[in-house]
Every structure is written in structure tokens, then in C-alpha cells.
């Protein structure tokens, strides 16, 4: 979907490249402004763009939102790292034992089909309202996609490359580290990227549903204070965070896996 060939690096080309997205954003904001300006939507349902824009500095300056946003980010990062550190080695190990592969897939497919949000009440009962609960639920939600992508990555290793390693009389661990892992890495990275956005959804969900800290908690309190403009501002900030993280991960992938053709 992105514009593939970089045109000649003229000023004109640069304006054209920037102009399209700007026009796109402008058109969406214009529709938004019109809808709220003409009273097509109730102001308490969707405040105008200016009101939401004005609420952003207010939200950032209220002394509460930023630390709580930090808490959300921290929870999210901890879950992501923790899951990756556990699920990837497990996936690599299982992937190298053909007998365990199919059974693992059956179990994983069953567990990942359970919507993680249904576990929130149980998570709260068992782990309380703190960060442990948030991390536990996020880990449950993303362990499966990361595990599956690792398994698929391992399975997609070119057998000829493994044979090449064998012919050089590499021991098992060496083949794993120098052949299997690099082959599986791009798929693992994709799994982590998907997991990252799922984890954020789960973390924010727990915050809406009773967790004691996090950006979601602040949004709920503004909602109860009947300040939809601030809520929208918060949602936009969360979205920006999500987009930045997604772009960072995608950029990292492109950087690290230059040999993978991106479709």
C-alpha cells in the first residue's frame, strides 16, 4: 500500500509525497469538524477536533496522566519481554522435536482461541488489581501467537541449509543457532509485532475493568467526570503510542531482515 518507488528527489516530488497524506488527514478532520459543527453528532458523544486538540495539553499537564501512561507502557513492555524470553526458546525446542510439534499445535490452538479478556475477572480474583494481574493476562494473550510463529518459523527452515550444516559436520546446537534460528527470526519478529498490539489492548482492557493503575484508569475517571474531549485526547495519545511502537518494530524488522522480501 505504500508508495513504492521513491521519485526523483526534487522539491516538487517531496511536496507531492507529503501532500497526499496531509490532504487525507485534512479531509478526515474536515468531516469530523463538519459533523460536530453541524450538530450531526451530540457534543458529548464526539466533541469537535479543536476541543479534543485543546484537551491534549490539559491531559498531559494534569500531573496524573503521564505517570499512568508510563505505567501502562512499562506493564506492556514487561509482558512483551517476559513472553518473548520464555516462548521463543520453548518454540525452538518443541520445533526441533517432530513428535511434539503437532500435539503442541493442537494445545496452542485451543488455548489461543479463548479470548483473553474473558480471563480478566479470574485474573483479578487470583492476582488482585496490581501489575501482576495485568502482566499475567497480557502474557496469556500473547504467549500463543509468539509460540506459534516460532514453531512455523522453525518449520519453514530450508532443509537443504540444515543438510549443508550437517555436511560441514556442525553439531546439533550449532545448526540450531546458525541455521534454524536465523531462518525462524523473521517469522518470530512478525509474531512479536502482532503480539505487541494485542498486549496493549489487553493491558488497557484490564485498566478499564478495575486495575488500580494505568492510562485506562485515568480515562475512565475523565469519562465519569463527563469530559469526553479529554477521553478522546487520551485515546489519540494511546493511538499515537501504538503507532510509534508498531512503526519502530516494523522498521527494526526491515533493518534486521534485509534478506526477507517484504510482500
Amino acid at each position: 500500500m505504500s508508495t513504492a518507488p521513491a521519485g526523483p528527489a526534487t522539491t516538487e516530488g517531496r511536496i507531492a509525497r507529503l501532500g497526499y497524506p496531509v490532504a487525507g488527514v485534512a479531509s478526515v478532520v474536515a468531516v469530523w469538524a463538519l459533523a460536530s459543527g453541524l450538530g450531526l453528532v451530540a457534543p458529548e458523544a464526539l466533541p469537535g477536533p479543536l476541543a479534543v486538540l485543546a484537551a491534549i495539553p490539559q491531559l498531559l499537564g494534569d500531573g496524573e496522566f503521564l505517570p499512568e501512561l508510563g505505567d501502562t507502557l512499562w506493564t506492556w513492555l514487561v509482558s512483551l519481554v517476559l513472553t518473548t524470553v520464555v516462548a521463543v526458546p520453548v518454540g525452538l525446542a518443541v520445533g526441533s522435536v517432530p513428535a511434539a510439534q503437532r500435539a503442541t499445535m493442537v494445545a496452542v490452538n485451543a488455548f489461543r482461541s479463548v479470548p483473553s479478556s474473558a480471563l480478566i475477572p479470574i485474573g483479578i480474583l487470583i492476582f488482585g488489581l496490581g501489575i501482576t494481574m495485568k502482566v499475567a493476562l497480557a502474557v496469556y494473550a500473547i504467549a500463543w501467537p509468539i509460540l506459534i510463529s516460532t514453531l512455523y518459523g522453525v518449520a519453514s527452515t530450508e532443509p537443504m541449509r540444515i543438510d549443508a550444516g550437517r555436511s560441514m559436520r556442525w553439531p546439533w546446537w550449532r545448526r540450531q543457532v546458525f541455521v534454524v534460528l536465523p531462518s525462524a527470526l523473521p517469522q518470530i519478529a512478525t509474531g512479536i509485532r502482532i503480539a505487541a498490539s494485542v498486549a496493549l489492548v489487553v493491558v488497557v482492557s484490564t485498566e478499564l475493568l478495575g486495575a488500580s493503575t494505568g492510562a485506562g484508569v485515568v480515562l475512565v475517571s475523565y469519562q465519569q467526570g463527563l469530559r469526553p474531549d479529554v477521553v478522546y485526547a487520551g485515546v489519540l495519545l494511546l493511538a499515537a503510542m501504538g503507532a510509534i511502537v508498531y512503526a519502530l518494530l516494523a522498521g527494526l524488522e526491515r533493518r534486521l531482515f534485509t534478506w526477507v522480501p517484504h510482500v
Binding site: M1, G24, V25, V201, V204, G216, L238, G242, A243, V245
Partner: peptide, 17 residues
């Protein structure tokens, strides 16, 4: 070109918020 950035922005938004 016009809407790709916006759509990706919405995609990465935690909609549950």
C-alpha cells in the same frame, strides 16, 4: 497515498480505549 497513514494509525490504536 492519502489514507494509508491514517488507516495504519487507526489500526495500531488500542480500540478498547
Amino acid at each position: 497515498r492519502m489514507y494509508d497513514p491514517i488507516v495504519r494509525f487507526f489500526m495500531s490504536m488500542p480500540k478498547v480505549a
